[in-house]
């Protein structure tokens, strides 16, 4: 069956376009929405976004490939983002990353066979004062300064996965 947006998404796309002087500016929010709905941005999803915004597919494709959070393949349920930039490195960020990889049996950029986790080695996530840290969806894991805390993080995410999606319905409509 060909891909299509849900009625709710189609409604939200209309509202999104109205937030900007032209439809092209809605590219990123609509791509986020498509990624939330379809899990990743396949060629078909890109085509769908291009049609919805009346843009050339090549333009939308160019946007997708520029930004690291737009994915071209399915990811794990939990996208676990572990920072190894300076503040985290100074306080053990590489040990956290290593332990996470060992426990999950995968490398950064990979997905566990059961589809529960992906690991991303991150640049600074603006939580340096609470380094070393990791982020999964809206859940921050701060001051991961012991092996126990890292294990507890993984356990918690197994029990209660944190999806990476835009939670509120689009930008709030004008005057709403």
């Amino acid at each position: 069956m060909p891909l299509s947006f849900s009625t709710e998404s189609a409604r939200r796309i209309e509202a999104l376009i109205k937030q900007y002087p032209d439809a092209q500016a809605a590219s990123m929010p609509v791509l986020h929405l498509a990624q939330d709905e379809f899990g990743f941005l396949s060629d078909e999803a890109i085509q769908l976004v291009a049609t919805a915004l009346k843009l050339p597919v090549s333009h939308v494709y160019g946007v997708v490939t520029f930004y690291t959070m737009f994915r071209r393949e399915p990811a794990g349920t939990n996208i676990l983002r572990v920072c190894t930039n300076v503040a985290c490195m100074l306080t053990g960020g590489y040990d956290v990353l290593k332990q996470v990889c060992e426990r999950l049996g995968i490398q950064p950029g990979e997905k566990t066979p059961d589809g529960a986790f992906s690991i991303v080695e991150e640049e600074c996530l603006a939580a340096c004062a609470d380094a070393p840290m990791a982020l999964c969806g809206q859940r921050y894991f701060l001051r991961l300064d012991s092996k126990e805390k890292v294990d507890a993080m993984i356990e918690e995410l197994r029990r209660q996965p944190q999806l990476e999606r835009t939670l509120l319905p689009g930008p709030v409509e004008k005057g709403a």
């Binding site: 959070m69 603006a126 835009t166 939670l167 509120l168």
Partner: peptide
């Protein structure tokens, strides 16, 4: 983009 929690809080505040 990575600030998903803050995005959520901000969207609520704007609403």
């Amino acid at each position: 983009g990575e600030m998903m929690r803050e995005h959520h809080v901000l969207q609520r505040a704007v609403a």
